[in-house]
Amino acid sequence: MRLAAERIDWRVHGHRLLDDVSLAVAPGETFGLVGPNGSGKTTLLRVLAGLRKPRTGRVLVNDASMYAMRQRDIARTIAFVEQQAETLDRIVVREAVALGRTPFLSALQPWSEQDDAIVDQALDNVGMAHLADRLWHTLSGGERQRVHIARALAQQPRILLLDEPTNHLDIRHQLSILSLVRQLSVTVVIALHDLNQAMECDRIGVMDGGRLVDVGSPSQVLTAERLHHTFGVHVDFLEDPHDQRRIMRFRNAL
């Protein structure tokens, strides 16, 4: 499913957080968002998820305006994994993941064995099936992040938005989650802090000061000039001896 933003502008108390941002993500594409802290990545994802309506511009889902869609239909189409999403409710892991099925339930379509199977699969995909009966508040930060991703998977979205999903995860689970995301047959927009991880995306957009300043393949965008100008670092490009992929080693530009 295609996702696009056209000339998005978002301000808070007169401060412009997004400035004339336009992008188009093709069906099935994994699009990475990178940029310094405060560059607008999270704000853009929240606009794309339908959680914020921009001052000007619009979001299109398969060329139709998101603002003409019912919230229930948006929730059936788009899943969003935020950096921080907490709850004070005393719920167990399975119940947290089951919330992903909410947009599909109604008086005429109550919970079914199929919903159970979808939740089970989502838990298994993120390696949390063995903790299905654990209380939410007893989980570590990394475990909670994996539950958030499982909840999104339980929505069976056609578009998946992730805001730095590998935060709080150890390296094994970082690699596992990113591998899972790449295997999904959905459109993905993922904000990443680790630029080497961003190299695995189909395309990358660079945010800086609320603007989308560059878009293209990782090799086109993550150049020495761009990294110095936007991130203030020098970079050495190395080659992985196992698969010949490009790896970046960073040095302080100061």
Rank of each mutant, 00 (worst) to 15 (best):
T87Q: 12
N62T: 06
N62G: 06
A85S: 14
L44N: 11
E95F: 09
S65V: 02
I74F: 05
Q83H: 08
A68C: 04
V59C: 06
R58W: 04
Q71R: 14
A79T: 08
A68F: 00
Q83A: 01
V93K: 02
V61F: 01
T42A: 10
M66E: 03
R90S: 13
E95S: 07
P54R: 00
G57T: 10
R94P: 00
R101P: 02
M66A: 09
D73G: 01
P36N: 05
I74Q: 03
I91R: 05
I91K: 07
V81R: 08
G100P: 08
E95V: 02
R76E: 00
K53S: 08
N62E: 15
R46S: 13
R94S: 06
M69A: 14
V93S: 03
S65A: 14
P54A: 07
L60T: 02
P36T: 00
E82L: 10
V61N: 02
L48R: 07
L99T: 08
S39W: 06
M66L: 15
Q84Y: 10
L51D: 14
T42D: 04
L45D: 01
T43N: 07
L45M: 02
N37D: 12
V59A: 06
V92K: 14
R55T: 11
A79G: 13
K41M: 13
Q83E: 08
R55F: 01
N62S: 14
V92D: 14
M66S: 03
E95I: 03
N37T: 07
R72S: 10
A79R: 09
P36L: 05
V47D: 03
A49I: 09
R46K: 15
V59K: 07
A79H: 10
A79Y: 12
M66R: 13
R46M: 11
F80Y: 15
G57Q: 10
L60A: 01
E86N: 13
V92G: 08
Q84F: 07
T42Q: 08
N37L: 11
E86I: 01
N37W: 06
T43S: 15
E86H: 09
I91D: 06
L48K: 04
R90N: 12
V97W: 01
R55M: 00
G100S: 12
P54W: 07
A85I: 04
T42S: 15
G35W: 08
D63M: 01
E86V: 08
G35E: 10
R70C: 03
R58M: 11
A68N: 14
M69P: 04
A98H: 00
L45Q: 01
